[in-house]
Design a protein around this nucleic acid. Structure first.
Lengths: 233, 233
DNA sequence: GTCTATAAGGAGATAGAC
DNA sequence: GTCTATCTCCTTATAGAC
């Protein structure tokens, strides 16, 4: 299973753990299987990473930190070039999606593992692992919400925030299990085809973001109608 | 923790397991904690459900079967009333989303657990559990793809299929961890507010589905440009 | 830094009494 | 149907030799 001789044991563990966590999640992955795959002793994990949670943290940090930096610097470059003019929604989305879908600088086997890892982490049930991502994620959220708000001045904040959640969810789901998607769509969708995934997302998310906001009156009217029907207050 | 006296042990186990699987996933949930919560003996699980996997199957079947039936009968009623006329995209989406977000007939504690369970199951890593959902899911997929294709005759099948995957993903993510969403959005999004979630989804998904298809020429052009830049064939 | 050996405990599952 | 007791296996984690 090892694709190439690892330069050092630490990297070997990180690579094996990356695949294991991406495939089975934090609880589902076992350190014993990871060290067997990496060709190192179990105690080595504790020497380098202190605990299973420490290993997960290192695995995520190695990939997500540069990814976030690429996204934020891409967004920043866009804003610099525009000099105060509102940006195209699609251009903003490109700086968010393209680094994620492409994951430059990593080999093809690792690249696919990292994409699955992102999806897995987004949907991770373990509260400790979730907690590790709250802070970095909130930096991203704020930057993209600000940029999008300038481009969509007529969209109320709650609508924009909901739409961003839908985008995180759809992105995470697609990355999570490419094999499943290819199977259930009978090969119509090929998640490995980065350019197609990107174009499809841009169209769908772009149109969704630019849709008219949800009317507050309509919402209130429907809510009371529903309440009357189901008999709740 | 037990909210009400359970009529029978089987139901008590199902209820406790539902919450456990929804919160921790299949691997993360422990039978010993489930039986402690349900107030029954460990062996009872094996008497009624044969195995942990059998329990998971029963937990899913109890909720998802009636849910699917409600969705499909809602879509069917819509098609009958339209008598061959293409349906409004939003109306189709409503029959898909509303039963999921509402989950009629269940109490509030259970209702929230079931919603989390759906999200959890959609992103479940364990291949055995995934396998259990392939067949019922494919029935749903086909029905909704057919209905949407009639309403969106100019949208090529691949585009429609991709967009449906985005919708499953976004829906699953929102259901998966409502507490996390409420926290990261600082209370701007309240996933318990069914009517708002529904309206926001209808707007976003409806606009996304009705967007122009991805141009095949543009895709081909970008693909060669990207390949040239990154140096791949 | 790397190893062996082992602690300490939780997991799913089952046999057999009642 | 329900229980106790237990089997077997695997888990994370650590102590201490080299």
């Amino acid at each position: 299973m090892t694709t190439s001789p690892e330069p050092d044991r630490k990297t070997a563990i990180l690579d094996a753990a990356e695949t294991a966590f991406a495939d089975a999640g934090f609880e589902g992955a076992s350190l014993r299987r990871i060290v067997r795959e990496a060709g190192v002793n179990l105690a080595t994990v504790y020497y380098y990473f202190e605990s299973k949670e420490g290993l997960m943290l290192a695995v995520m940090d190695r990939r997500f930190r540069p990814l976030r930096e690429e996204q934020l610097s891409g967004l920043d470059a866009l804003e610099q070039a525009a000099a105060g003019q509102p940006l195209a929604v699609e251009a903003i989305l490109e700086t968010l999606l393209m680094p994620t879908l492409r994951l430059v600088g990593t080999g093809s086997v690792r690249q696919e593992a990292v994409k699955r890892l992102i999806g897995r982490v987004v949907t991770e049930p373990n509260p400790q692992i979730q907690q590790l991502l709250v802070r970095p994620h909130s930096v991203m959220r704020t930057a993209y919400l600000q940029a999008l708000q300038l481009s969509l001045p007529d969209l109320p904040m709650p609508d924009l925030v909901w739409r961003m959640e839908f985008i995180w969810g759809a992105l995470g789901f697609i990355l999570c299990n490419p094999a499943k998607i290819e199977m259930v769509t009978a090969g119509v969708c090929n998640p490995a085809d980065t350019e197609t995934v990107f174009q499809q997302m841009i169209r769908f998310f772009g149109a969704g973001l630019k849709a008219a906001p949800v009317s507050r009156q309509r919402l209130a009217a429907r809510r009371t109608a529903t309440a009357r029907k189901t008999g709740r207050a």
